[in-house]
Simulated scan of single mutants.
Amino acid sequence: MLVETIACALIGLAVGVGALVLLPAYFPASRTLTLSTALVAALLSGLIARYALDGRLPGVALVVSALGSGLLVSVLARPDLAARRGTHRRHRHV
């Protein structure tokens, strides 16, 4: 169980860092909020999957952990603000 918990935590951190590195304009909230959301979501979804599967399929629990983390981090994404910020930089009103 300890190894699975560490793996879920690493998955959560990887999802959070990946979101911040790949799409930084989509996450105007603080980096701490994004990383902590990814971490907690991965741990909780991994725990729920572990109990739902009776601990038999740890690989599936890790996949569920990654999916849960990605889904909850996507709630924080704000592409509407990123698009608005990008258009103001490109077009100047004279």
Rank of each mutant, 00 (worst) to 15 (best):
residue 28 P to E: 01
residue 62 L to T: 04
residue 15 V to P: 04
residue 68 G to K: 09
residue 64 V to G: 09
residue 26 Y to S: 03
residue 61 A to H: 01
residue 18 G to A: 12
residue 25 A to E: 15
residue 50 R to V: 03
residue 13 L to C: 14
residue 3 V to F: 07
residue 2 L to P: 01
residue 89 R to M: 06
residue 61 A to L: 04
residue 9 A to R: 03
residue 40 V to F: 10
residue 6 I to E: 05
residue 79 P to S: 02
residue 65 S to M: 08
residue 46 G to Y: 03
residue 79 P to L: 06
residue 21 V to F: 11
residue 19 A to F: 10
residue 83 A to E: 11
residue 75 V to C: 05
residue 20 L to Q: 02
residue 53 L to H: 12
residue 35 L to N: 11
residue 60 V to D: 11
residue 39 L to P: 12
residue 19 A to V: 04
residue 50 R to Y: 09
residue 91 H to W: 12
residue 29 A to E: 06
residue 48 I to D: 04
residue 89 R to I: 11
residue 17 V to H: 10
residue 14 A to C: 15
residue 81 L to K: 00
residue 74 S to D: 12
residue 47 L to F: 13
residue 36 S to P: 01
residue 57 L to R: 10
residue 14 A to I: 10
residue 82 A to G: 03
residue 51 Y to I: 11
residue 94 V to K: 15
residue 87 T to P: 00
residue 53 L to I: 15
residue 8 C to F: 10
residue 23 L to I: 08
residue 62 L to Q: 05
residue 22 L to G: 12
residue 37 T to H: 02
residue 26 Y to M: 06
residue 68 G to D: 11
residue 62 L to C: 11
residue 85 R to L: 06
residue 16 G to L: 14
residue 73 V to R: 03
residue 37 T to Q: 05
residue 84 R to E: 07
residue 41 A to H: 01
residue 36 S to H: 08
residue 49 A to Q: 00
residue 70 G to F: 10
residue 23 L to M: 09
residue 90 R to G: 12
residue 46 G to N: 03
residue 21 V to K: 15
residue 90 R to I: 05
residue 37 T to W: 01
residue 94 V to A: 14
residue 22 L to F: 14
residue 1 M to R: 07
residue 48 I to N: 00
residue 73 V to S: 11
residue 51 Y to T: 10
residue 31 R to N: 09
residue 73 V to F: 13
residue 83 A to R: 05
residue 38 A to S: 13
residue 62 L to N: 06
residue 24 P to R: 02
residue 83 A to V: 09
residue 78 R to M: 02
residue 94 V to Y: 12
residue 25 A to M: 05
residue 68 G to N: 12
residue 43 L to P: 04
residue 70 G to N: 11
residue 47 L to G: 03
residue 76 L to K: 08
residue 8 C to G: 06
residue 38 A to Q: 08
residue 28 P to Q: 01
residue 39 L to N: 10
